[in-house]
């Protein structure tokens, strides 16, 4: 686009427009995951038999992935700090580290799911597993989307352009992280 409309440059709330939009986006995401997890919790409370199914999830793999995501959130914060200081190349490197975390998370997840499906725990095996794959799959789609967005942000940040976007990508990434913080105990720890 040739030029931004004047509307984009205004800020009556004194919150940058991009940041405001990301927060509203997260508002809509919270209710999507909220609805799914509330449904899961209600079902879980009504079905004692699901404990037996949940026992088959691999808590150690889940814990490892939690660690990976938390670490990637740390690098996202450091990238924001570097962007605040005007150091675009450093911010870009830290974002690439975050993308690396996202990739690790997805690869581990792929191995985990392959193993489970081989053991017969498919999405149709039981309604617990339907929730397991739907919730974690929706989350994984968000991880993937966040990684793709960060590729673009990192490339422009490396040239010291659009540094404010580093923070926006970071806000989104923390949200993806927080969703997993809910999923991990609900799907793995609660046996």
């Amino acid at each position: 686009m040739s030029s931004r409309p004047i509307a984009t440059t205004r800020s009556a709330t004194e919150i940058p427009t991009g940041k405001l939009a990301v927060w509203w986006l997260l508002g809509s995401e919270i209710v999507i995951f909220g609805g799914l997890l509330a449904s899961y919790i209600m079902y879980r409370l009504a079905h004692d038999a699901w404990h037996a199914q949940a026992a088959a999830t691999n808590t150690w793999i889940g814990a490892f992935n939690t660690l990976v995501l938390l670490t990637s959130s740390l690098t996202a914060v450091l990238a924001h700090q570097a962007a605040e200081e005007g150091n675009g190349p450093k911010a870009a490197k830290l974002l690439w580290a975050t993308i690396g975390g996202a990739a690790t998370f997805l690869i581990v997840k792929a191995f985990e799911w392959t193993m489970e499906i081989r053991h017969g725990y498919t999405i149709t095996a039981d309604t617990f597993w339907s929730f397991y794959y739907t919730a974690a799959g929706l989350h994984a789609a968000h991880v993937l989307a966040g990684a793709v967005v960060m590729v673009f942000v990192a490339r422009s940040a490396a040239r010291n352009q659009e540094l404010h976007r580093v923070e926006l990508a970071g806000i989104y990434w923390h949200f993806v992280d927080i969703v997993w913080i809910f999923l991990f105990p609900l799907l793995y720890i609660a046996k």
């Binding site: 509203w24 508002g27 809509s28 209710v31 995951f33 609805g35 509330a38 449904s39």
Partner: peptide, 11 residues
């Protein structure tokens, strides 16, 4: 709309 449609998207 934004705050009500989420659960139905999941649904």
């Amino acid at each position: 709309f934004m705050l009500s449609v989420g659960p139905l998207v999941a649904g």
